[in-house]
């Protein structure tokens, strides 16, 4: 936790902490933006006026309709005369799908390793810390570039790579949480009831640490979105004819001076999505901190 909420001697949150809390209007905005983003990604087929690869070479690089562009092209057109608005909707779908899958892969992998390290300790903890050190000593972008260059580009590998980004945060978090749960005694009590360790961890420990895990996921998620965009921007992520937000910025870069909307539209969506998830994650963490721990 980066910031400690200030408390007075008897443990009430002081005014400092309460003014620091995010106003609920911002939270409502962030949550509704996320809902809209998810819905428009899911319903892109219905909402989009055109397909994401429908070209019309007669109207290339036209400005958005509200700036005098052709009627019905809300965000203008790109260099092949494709509707930027429709492409943003489909890009949102692919980017979110990949980011969510990548996050789940990373959270699942990290959580599993964290549980193994906390349960077996000894050798498993050594393996875990060796892997964490290994990851920490290589810039992740370079690692991702190398992996994609060596093994070729596939969506499967791409998602795995996104999952590898940040798994160690989950592993360390879960290991610590499980160890402190063991200290609390209910784990030993359950062990003494003769329950199988798998049952204890899945039915009892996981629900108890689930809140902290969920907060960590929301804090990591923007990073994954940005990484996906960054790799796609560099041409190593999603490949055409598929589309993603990062890919759109990458191809719009060349026309920044003449047709800025090709890059600004997807860029704004990335920015707002990442910001909203961060805000919701922060708010969620504050709520969790305020909850009685026992």
């Amino acid at each position: 936790m980066k910031e400690q909420a200030a408390t007075d001697p008897i443990g009430r949150r002081t005014t400092f902490a309460s003014t620091r809390r995010l106003p609920s209007l911002v939270i409502a905005g962030a949550i509704s933006f996320l809902l809209v983003a998810v819905m428009s990604g899911a319903l892109a087929d219905i909402l989009a006026p055109q397909g994401y690869n429908d070209q019309n070479l007669l109207i290339r690089l036209k400005p958005p309709s509200f700036l005098g562009g052709p009627h019905g092209y809300y965000f203008g057109t790109d260099e092949l005369g494709r509707d930027v608005f429709s492409r943003v909707l489909f890009s949102l779908r692919f980017s979110l799908l990949i980011a969510v899958t990548g996050t789940l892969v990373g959270a699942g992998f990290g959580t599993l390793l964290g549980f193994l390290a906390a349960h077996f300790q000894g050798l498993w903890e050594d393996i875990l810390s060796a892997l964490v050190d290994f990851q920490a000593s290589i810039p992740f972008m370079i690692f991702a570039l190398a992996a994609l260059a060596f093994f070729g580009n596939s969506i499967f590998l791409f998602v795995i790579l996104l999952g590898l980004y940040g798994w160690e945060v989950y592993a360390r978090l879960v290991r610590g949480l499980v160890l402190s749960a063991k200290e609390l005694g209910y784990v030993e009590a359950l062990r003494n009831l003769g329950f199988h360790p798998i049952r204890i961890y899945s039915r009892h420990v996981l629900p108890n640490i689930g809140g902290a895990l969920l907060v960590q996921i929301t804090l990591n998620f923007p990073g994954i979105i940005l990484l996906e965009s960054g790799l796609s921007f560099l041409g190593l992520g999603i490949q055409p004819p598929l589309t993603s937000l990062g890919l759109m910025i990458g191809s719009g870069r060349e026309f920044m001076t003449t047709a800025w909307w090709t890059a600004v539209a997807p860029g704004t969506v990335i920015f707002l999505t990442a910001l909203s998830v961060t805000l919701v994650g922060d708010w969620f963490r504050d709520r969790l901190d305020a909850m009685p721990s026992n």
Binding site: L184, G185, Y186, A189, L190, N192, L193, H204, N208, N294
Partner: peptide, 13 residues
């Protein structure tokens, strides 16, 4: 079975 001094610690919170 065992009954502990810390009754809260013996139960899943």
């Amino acid at each position: 079975q065992m009954i502990f001094q810390d009754s809260a610690g013996a139960l899943d919170p």
